[in-house]
Nucleic acid binder design. Structure first.
Lengths: 189, 189
DNA sequence: GCCGCAGTAGACAGAGTTGTCTACCCTGAA
DNA sequence: TTCAGGGTAGACAACTCTGTCTACTGCGGC
């Protein structure tokens, strides 16, 4: 369904489309998907309804594009941050600290979306699973090769998700980072 | 604000109120809070609008009552399940397995709500923090007394949250449980 | 020069949202 | 017996939501 191209390709990498997508990204991530009306996205991206609906036939299409964009953006940042902090397992905590302490941190966009869109966009679970798989792969790349690297990476990724959650409801991310560090230390000893 | 009693107590533990609350619990947990309209709750609990608004002056009041109810219900189940599985740290994985494999499992109601209500009901972060604090206390009670029990419990709770998330997007909870078991084993060795 | 098309501008439909209000019923306690 | 109050039944207001539609503009390539 989703991927069938229209007879005459109606959209491309236009400036308007980019503006819509970036605006939607900020609003969806900050306020949540359901809390953000299409009208708001349209108004804030300085575009008209006709233009919006030319690029995104429905809100769900925009949501999918948002998650796709978010995935690329976040993964690029994550991989870069891990390298910047040494490219080993020890890079995980300082990298996440950066994110958690960053201005508009509001948790994981995928986890948040999964919670609110289970009914209206069931595929968000699959999208989230793929996102977390890529995150786990990036983590695995930091670990020394061994027979249990895959499972170690799974465990680390699980702990990272726990830390993201905790950093989302605690006033400061310190406890989340400390607990994560404790887990990593004992897990990779 | 929230806790000020009205001059003449307008509500009590009536049957109607209970029906509304239980219906709201099921719908909010299954479909999400924003996705569930007040009309739906009213229709499915077999009550009229006037009755509903007598007990819950606004949807936010209902949401707060829902989270409170959910907290009591979930904590009671959790403590009971941990005891039933032996009352030690080893009880955590089988207890969660029960929940994850249960019929309507849809993740943690608090984490889900925090994601979608950040804007309209900011206090949900505090409610979630208190809920997780109680969960952590229940976990701490399983661990042998030591100087680091508190921090161990924090780390275990963080991993539990990670497992809840993973069980929410994976088709089966097996990987989540295995990764959690791995973390517990190395953490409590 | 003209034509296609991405864009602007905005009215409009149809459904759904929360919340209010009137009118009536029924029961249990003073 | 009266009467307060929790309940039923449902209209209605005011707003927001997604999505459609018409009419016009401005520009780049053929």
């Amino acid at each position: 369904m989703t991927a069938i191209a229209s007879p005459v390709p109606p959209v491309r990498d236009s400036a308007a489309r980019q503006r819509i997508l970036l605006t939607a990204h900020d609003l969806f991530y900050r306020d949540g998907v359901r809390a953000t009306g299409i009208d708001r996205v349209i108004a804030e991206s300085g575009v008209t309804k006709a233009t919006f609906y030319r690029h995104f036939p429905s809100k769900n299409d925009l949501v999918r594009a948002f998650l796709d964009h978010r995935h690329r953006r976040w993964m690029a940042w994550f991989v870069e941050a891990l390298q910047r902090h040494g490219g080993a397992a020890a890079a995980i905590v300082p990298s996440l600290a950066e994110w958690f302490r960053g201005e508009g941190f509001r948790g994981c966009a995928f986890i948040n979306s999964m919670g609110e869109l289970a009914g209206s966009l069931p595929e968000v679970a699959d999208i989230t699973r793929r996102h977390k798989q890529d995150m786990t792969d990036a983590i695995a790349a930091l670990l020394p090769a061994s027979r249990q690297r895959r499972q170690q990476a799974d465990a680390v990724a699980l702990a990272v998700d726990g830390a993201i959650i905790r950093a989302q409801f605690d006033p400061t991310p310190d406890a989340a980072l400390a607990a994560l560090a404790r887990i990593l230390k004992s897990l990779l000893a």
